[in-house]
Design a protein around this nucleic acid. Structure first.
Length: 501
DNA sequence: ATGTGC
């Protein structure tokens, strides 16, 4: 494995072939890396990020690698990339937070219901009581009707959002149709193999009962819940699609970002360690000599174990999101009786899926990347979105807004994928050095956006992220997707200096 | 991302 050097080439070796599309050749017979991003965006990719992309592109069994405009360094592969392999699975290019995802709940409320501050404060409190934030945090005072014991926890991991699990947790079962995948199965397409795998893992699953009580919680870092006002665009097509998605112009919606919490973390790190030990023992060369890029050929016990563990974590994340949405709706109903809500969509940006790429089945690893299938895509047949394409949920930042998009046929270029958000511009330490807490808080006050935190976490401030409009411009100019609606924050739930502690 | 250092 020769690791190419990139620093001496102009533009880091990236060759533009359109306003927002480019290629990065990696030498040999390899198809080049597909790069999405305007010139301004392409300048934000640092060397390590590009080296990770090259390592990933030239790794065994990989046929396609897409680098998205929000790309930055990740574990082995960049956050913000798509890696396709018909023959291998790669745990690193799924990531440590298995099935980290976005979901959007459309309520029946008009925007003026969330104007006055006391109502928004009451909503923040009611939501925080039910859906906690923070490391280790889970359900504190869940009512008996929604308590997750060990037995139900096992069912969640094995079945995902099955009818039985939804009923046991008070989740409207029809929401399962509004999921990118409501349930994940094991390596042999059965749930039986997942049950067996979980049984085998149980002795290592420290505090399993405690971890399953994390269902219905956000965790920390960039995870959040956000009350939004939905703003449709001007053109007829986007308004028609927004209607079909069940969005309401000028209505109140709730956007959530979270993943598989402690369970997914334990499953992912367990897989990294197990595979790294085997690579050490076997002395097999790693792509770019990077231990974070361990892999397993399909059909081996190692690949089976990874696919099973990924499915267990993914099922937890799916039910976590659906329960959060059910609990958030309950919180709205406590504060504003009579309000109703429907799940618009639940879609992941950290998962490997079996899809058809270039007419053959392949594992599409999306790491900080979102599936983007347009109207008429064969995989959407029989879903509510066959005629429109499915909703794409892209968090930007509370001040610039977030976006609902829909894929265009041009998304074939990026293996039917787009970015997963704005992407970091400043590392956490750099953000703490560069940004001023009072200015950050003042900017939220000026925009009349409330938060559950006394001080907004500075490393999560909008200025720590790339310019969201430039990122969206890249996606549109590359022909991947169109904007359907913008979401403007009215209040934000984050892990931070909580007002209720 | 994470019972936020192995």
């Amino acid at each position: 494995m020769s690791s190419q050097t990139i620093e001496t080439k102009p533009n880091n070796g990236i060759i533009a072939d359109g306003e927002a599309t480019a290629i990065l050749p990696t030498g040999g017979k390899h198809k080049p890396i597909t790069v999405i991003g305007t010139e301004a965006i392409r300048g934000t990719f640092d060397e390590l990020c590009l080296q990770q992309a090259i390592n990933s592109r030239t790794a065994p069994g990989v046929t396609d690698l897409v680098l998205n405009p929000d790309a930055h360094c990740g574990y082995g592969a960049p956050v913000g990339c798509v890696m396709v392999s018909p023959t291998h699975v790669y745990p690193g290019p799924v990531g440590v937070d298995i099935k980290c995802s976005m979901s959007l709940l459309q309520t029946s409320l008009p925007a003026d219901a969330v104007i006055d501050k006391p109502t928004r404060r009451a909503l923040i409190n009611a939501i925080c009581e039910r859906t906690p934030t923070g490391a280790g945090r889970g359900q504190r005072n869940a009512p008996k009707s929604r308590r997750v014991d060990e037995a139900l926890g096992r069912r969640v991991l094995v079945e995902g959002a099955s009818r039985g699990v939804c009923e046991a947790l008070g989740i409207p079962p029809e929401w399962a149709e509004r999921c990118e995948d409501s349930a994940h199965v094991g390596h042999d397409d059965s749930t039986a193999s997942l049950a067996l795998r979980l049984e085998k893992l149980m002795p290592q699953m420290h505090n399993f009962a405690g971890k399953v009580t994390q269902l219905g919680s956000y965790g920390g870092g960039n995870h959040f819940g956000e009350c939004e006002v939905v703003e449709f665009g001007e053109d007829d097509r986007s308004r028609r699609v927004a209607d079909a998605f069940g969005l309401i112009d000028g209505g109140v919606a709730f956007l959530s970002h979270c993943g598989s919490r402690g369970i997914g973390h334990q499953l992912a790190t367990g897989q990294f360690k197990a595979l790294q030990q085997k690579f050490d023992r076997w002395d097999i060369p790693l792509p770019g000599q990077d231990r974070e890029l361990v892999y397993a050929p399909l059909g081996t016990p190692e690949a089976d174990a990874y696919l099973d563990d990924m499915a267990l974590g993914a099922n937890f994340a799916t039910v976590n999101h659906l329960l959060i949405n059910a609990l958030v709706l309950e919180a709205f109903q406590e504060v504003i009786p009579g309000v109703t809500g429907r799940l618009v969509y639940f879609i992941s940006h950290n998962i490997a899926r079996k899809e058809i790429v270039d007419s053959r089945p392949a594992w599409v690893h999306r790491k900080g990347a979102t599936r983007a299938m347009p109207a008429g895509h064969h995989a959407l047949a029989g879903t509510p979105f066959a005629e429109t394409g499915h909703p794409i949920l892209l968090p930007g930042n509370p001040q610039a807004g977030s976006a609902v998009m829909v894929a265009d046929p041009g998304a074939e270029l990026s293996c039917y994928s787009v970015n997963h958000g704005a992407g970091r511009q400043l590392g956490r330490k750099a953000a703490k050095r560069a940004l001023d807490q009072r200015e950050v808080d003042a900017s939220f006050d000026a925009a009349d956006i409330l938060s559950n935190c006394r001080q907004y976490p500075i490393d999560e401030a909008p200025a720590a992220y790339k310019d969201f409009d430039e990122v969206l411009r890249s996606v549109k100019a590359a022909g991947l997707a169109s904007e359907v609606a913008r979401l403007k924050a009215r209040f934000v739930i984050k892990d931070g200096d909580k007002a209720d502690d």
